[in-house]
Simulated assay, not measured.
Amino acid sequence: MTITETILKIDRLTKDFGPVRAVDGVELDIRRNEFFALLGPSGCGKSTLLRMLAGFVTPTAGDIVLEGDSITGLPPERRPLNLMFQSYALFPHMTVAKNLAYGLEMDRLPKVEIARRVEEIMAVTDLTEFASRKPEQLSGGQRQRVALARALVKRPKVLLLDEPLGALDKKLRERMQLELKRLQHEVGITFIIVTHDQEEALVMADRMAILKDGKLLQHGAPAEIYQNPADRFVANFIGVMNFIEGQVGTDGFFEAPGLTVSNAASAAGQAALAIRPEEIDLVGPEENGLQGRIVDIAYHGLDRVLHVETPASATPLQVRVSARLSGGHMVGETIRLGIAPERCKFFTA
């Protein structure tokens, strides 16, 4: 199903902390029932933006519109949005069932309705068998599911998640990424997640936005941003990217030591060629290519990453190849790299 209907509009949202502008005129349309990721390095403004949506931080300027109505002036408790923190913030003296029921009790829902909702959300999040346990009796992944269930049981129109998987180890984190995505589809709620983990965003998000220094640099589907980054920062931030510094001549060709590539850049001058490790080919000695020497081989299970020293770059280029194809290569070996112009991006220096 294609998700097109806007549920939340972020309109030129800005936040100043004294002389520091933490969020700078961000504009985004979040669609109903989508999984949207806010991504960027530490200090880029993503958590501040999330807290403005939740109502815990007051914007300096701009507006937050939910289903056509401004909620910018509403206090957190009156917004149909829930914020799940990285720390989970579970009540240690309460059982899982009591933790889930607490917010509904504060809303003064009938006891029968509370019991029905708690039972329903425990079934969806696979927590039924842990209903009588307290948080200290649960694993990290189970506590994470309780925190998520507690947010979902109130049936918010939008669920805000601030680094929700940051406290988990790598293996559990990867499992919970898929669990979050599954739950989001099952409950049909819009998720907005803040993360600094690019792989996490690529795995889970329907769309994502990249922020830097409070500014929105690019937003779109993960594949679109990965394949067509708007600038050098985005290209470097999302995934692994090789950069080769060089010069574009008046003939439209990019040149670096040992390398010449036809180029679509509009202007002559200094430029950087960018290419993903998986887009570089290994070619035979009789073919045109960039000559280099393997200085390291990193094993990644199904594939390997060759680190290749070349005259074109001050740092070794990374070349991702399948384990089957790379089995015969050794550190110290001289190889040739094929860099096809249609696989490259060019950024002005």
Rank of each mutant, 00 (worst) to 15 (best):
L138R: 15
L183V: 11
A221E: 15
G188Y: 11
V240H: 07
I189G: 09
Q198V: 04
K212P: 06
V194W: 00
R182F: 05
F191R: 04
I210A: 08
I225H: 13
P222S: 02
K181N: 08
T190D: 04
K171T: 14
L159T: 12
L178E: 12
G249T: 05
V240P: 06
R182L: 06
G239S: 04
G239T: 04
A149T: 12
V158I: 09
E136Q: 15
P222R: 10
P156I: 14
I192F: 01
R207N: 12
R150P: 06
L165R: 08
G246F: 10
R182W: 01
P164G: 06
H219Q: 15
G140A: 09
L211A: 06
V146H: 00
K157T: 10
T250C: 04
T195F: 00
K215P: 09
L165V: 02
G246Y: 09
R143S: 03
L202G: 05
P135K: 14
I193R: 01
F237K: 14
E245T: 14
G188P: 05
A230N: 02
R175D: 09
F191P: 01
G249W: 05
M208S: 05
N228E: 15
L165Q: 01
Y226R: 07
I192P: 03
A147I: 04
D213N: 08
K181C: 06
K181D: 00
E199C: 01
S139W: 15
G252E: 06
P164Q: 05
L180K: 02
V158T: 14
I192N: 00
R155F: 11
Q142P: 05
E179P: 02
L211D: 01
L217R: 14
T195P: 13
D251A: 03
E200R: 02
I192G: 03
V234H: 03
T190E: 01
